[in-house]
Simulated assay, not measured.
Amino acid sequence: MTIHIGAAPGDIAPTVLMPGDPLRARWAAETFLDAPRCVTEVRGMLGYTGTWRGHPVTVQGSGMGMPSLSIYASELIREYGVTTLIRIGSCGAMQPHVALRDVILAMTASSIGTPSSTILREVNFAPCADWGLLQAAAAAAQDQGVTPHVGGIWSTDTFYDERPDLTDQLTRHGTLAVEMEAAELYTLAARHKARALAVLTVSDHLQTGQALPGDQRETGFAAMVEIALAAAFPG
């Protein structure tokens, strides 16, 4: 058992889906897994374990932002032996050709800094997705009739942005979307030889100001979860 997860040994599967919202974790587990059971609710951060097509899967909330994600991902990898971590979450589109409800597969994740920056010091480390997961997710999306956007995203710890100049430059350099966790997830996975991927659904658009209504933010995310599961267990 760990401080922040508290699940018993054997309660966490080797493959974990990580939404930021613990209620989204419950929704995903109850919607997509067989026989899901709550294995942790420490600090209200819900985690469920069940099976998908016979494969054991855990869905664990990560909280908002890279510092929170870092805690949960570190404990999952180091204490529970998790080898595959897939972030499933929302993002804000930054390119005109990316629309609400579109799915983004994050090949890379830029950031100003992450909790791991203190280790890397002056190096501008380039965190990236696991190629096998990325390739499998792209194939799974196509099988479902979804054409995903594949490319770089931006991970920030500032939700209420006060740097429009930075947003403009990232958009200019082709960044697809902004979210708050993937860069640290990819860095931790690289450090501990785990596999990681972020599969994201566009819920907001920075250029147009469009946003999904609250009641559509779960129902519109089903494709993302299905792609993540199919990527973890291809074939």
Results as ranks from 00 to 15, higher is better:
V202D: 08
A211G: 07
D165G: 09
G44I: 15
T51M: 09
G50D: 06
R37Q: 10
A141G: 15
L134N: 01
H192W: 14
A228I: 03
G92P: 07
G10Y: 08
G113V: 08
I77T: 03
R195E: 05
A198H: 10
M180D: 09
R121I: 08
S74E: 09
T31N: 11
G65P: 00
P115A: 05
C91L: 09
Q142W: 12
A126H: 11
M107R: 10
G63Y: 01
I3P: 12
L120V: 08
G61M: 13
L17H: 04
S203W: 04
A109M: 05
A138E: 15
T171A: 08
W154I: 05
H173I: 06
A141W: 07
R37V: 07
I227V: 06
A137N: 03
R53N: 15
T171V: 05
P213C: 12
D21M: 06
R53M: 15
I112M: 10
D215Q: 12
T147L: 14
I153T: 08
P14W: 08
G92E: 02
L33Q: 05
V123T: 13
Y72N: 07
R24K: 06
Y80R: 06
P9G: 05
R195K: 06
A189V: 00
A198L: 08
S117P: 01
D21A: 07
M45T: 10
Q95K: 09
L200G: 12
S110A: 10
T219P: 13
F221G: 11
D21L: 06
E218V: 06
P14T: 11
E79C: 08
P9N: 07
L76I: 04
T15D: 00
K193M: 13
F233L: 09
S155F: 04
Y80D: 03
G235K: 14
A196T: 00
T219M: 14
A189Y: 00
T108N: 05
S68C: 01
T49Q: 06
M45R: 14
G235F: 07
V225I: 15
R78L: 12
A231P: 08
Q142F: 07
L176I: 06
T2G: 13
V98T: 04
F159N: 03
M64W: 00
V199H: 04
T83F: 02
H55S: 13
Y48R: 01
I77Y: 03
I88S: 12
I88Q: 12
A29G: 11
S62G: 07
F32V: 10
M64P: 03
Y160Q: 00
G20M: 11
V82G: 05
T40I: 11
V123R: 12
V57G: 02
C91W: 12
M1L: 12
I71M: 04
V199A: 04
G220D: 14
N124L: 09
H205M: 02
I71D: 03
S155I: 02
G6K: 14
D157M: 09
A194Y: 02
Y48L: 00
V225E: 09
G151N: 05
P67K: 02
P234W: 01
L69E: 00
L200E: 14
